[in-house]
Design a protein around this nucleic acid. Structure first.
Lengths: 261, 261
DNA sequence: ATAACTGTTCATATCGTATGAACAGACGTA
DNA sequence: TACGTCTGTTCATACGATATGAACAGTTAT
């Protein structure tokens, strides 16, 4: 599951360009459906066919949508935007090599997550054998409350920010292991702070287990997290070795120190 | 250099959502500048400050722009769009492993390019030692006329399509080696067709040299190209070995055959 | 302290969006 | 084949919303 979708344009205040809202509602619908026709989108978004057609043909003219017969799909130009956004992140540049090494050393998938608007975004994922395409993809947004990386980030936020995230986004129950009680989450975050590492047990994907350590700025505010993920059973074995978990922490520390030089 | 930018909204016909055009002009300006303030964008795009502010705050509300103090930047959500678009491409799924192997076998950067709207887009780039971040990035659009991959694609287009690309986009001179004469390009494309491979010599980046082979559908229409790129001097040495160049071709053939099974 | 910036909000006029109808063409069915 | 129902696209219209420039307060430099 990805983040929730954009409400219809009329729910926004007067200081909002509602045409733009509608455009992005269409873009996100196309993201979900990968390819769609005019009337499908009109039905789904409750818009007139003419309206959808106008938006799609506009997006086609600016090259962000491609028409294939009667179907429309998002164009590869979005890849260019995504790649540019990512490469502008200091943390991505600095962390790239370390994450690669971490994947190699652990034999599992290693990632970087960055918080944005109360969500966590995986900006980098490397597996020991090539790029991973299953389960979680680079660029995916996930709730901070239901992943090891997210918990590592939340744990280092100020109480104020943390509570804001919790009240804004709640604690969506994604698997039977997801923490859904705010008080329980606060306890868990205290443990994360003390141990300087977060662990999840299938709270986002059942059967997946992750270890994470946070990267902070000089005041201790969270900038992101380093994560190692794998199948629960294999991860359980590996976690028995204390060196394994400390690898995640030392990677995070190394990235953090290089961020400030 | 990336693809050219969107003209101002008023130049579009009546069947176009001009608000959307303006929004994407702002998005592309933010792509170029990575972070910008309201009045910078207003100056650059020749819009009223109030207009830019309205668009930016709209984009922020739908989570596609992040505000950091007085600066605005594109959000990581564009990464999610880009990753989704890419993973919907059959050719990406099929080619991934082969390109990885090709990078390893050649010791150079191996890529897949896909044509879209008369441009070539690098949808995948793998280097023997980790992900390459220099020069050309995944997601970047380049002119078909000035790259080996682009020439491999152009060579397999119908004469009609090919001429349409040439007349629409021209032959932009990117380095002193770029082919700028249409007739010379047509000759070159004939050679490409005969040899079943395209070579460039710094026509896009000086000092870079690439070999490419096309991937086509069952009717022979170009779907993309497989490319190996590296520094000119090193590539010259390697190209002396006939097996080296044929590796590119056999990779393309293998991808193509697996596309139709 | 001044001055020149800034980002944001506001009211206004005009432009342009969203709508639903109308149309022709594609598609499937009988 | 002929029908009916779907489609995408275009069009005119009414209303709504965009773009504007001015006004304002806040910030940064001078």
């Amino acid at each position: 599951m990805d983040t929730s979708s954009i409400p219809e344009a009329s729910t926004f205040d007067r200081q909002t360009a509602k045409t733009t809202v509608t455009t992005f509602r269409i873009v996100e619908a196309l993201k979900r459906q990968s390819r769609a026709r005019v009337s499908e989108l009109a039905d789904e978004l409750d818009l007139a066919k003419g309206t959808v057609h106008k938006h799609l043909s506009t997006l086609r003219k600016v090259n962000y949508v491609v028409q294939e017969g009667k179907q429309y799909r998002l164009s590869l130009r979005f890849m260019g935007l995504g790649a540019t956004v990512r490469s502008n992140l200091d943390i991505y540049q600095v962390a790239y090599r370390s994450v690669e090494k971490l994947a190699e050393a652990t034999g599992e998938v290693a990632s970087i997550m960055i918080p944005e608007n109360g969500y966590g975004v995986y900006v980098l994922r490397v597996s020991a054998e090539g790029r991973p395409d299953i389960d979680i993809r680079e660029g995916e947004s996930v709730p901070l409350t239901a992943t090891a990386g997210g918990k590592a980030i939340l744990a280092n936020m100020s109480a104020e920010e943390r509570e804001q995230v919790i009240s804004r986004h709640g604690l969506p129950e994604l698997t039977e292991n997801t923490i859904t009680d705010p008080e329980e989450l606060r306890d868990e975050l205290r443990r994360v702070r003390n141990r300087r590492r977060a662990i999840d047990r299938g709270e986002y994907h059942p059967g997946q287990r992750c270890v994470a350590a946070s990267i902070t700025d000089l005041e201790g505010n969270p900038l992101g997290a380093v994560i190692v993920s794998g199948p629960s059973d294999r991860m359980n074995e590996k976690l028995a070795d204390a060196d394994f978990a400390s690898l995640v922490g030392s990677t995070a520390d190394s990235v953090q120190s290089r961020l400030y030089r």
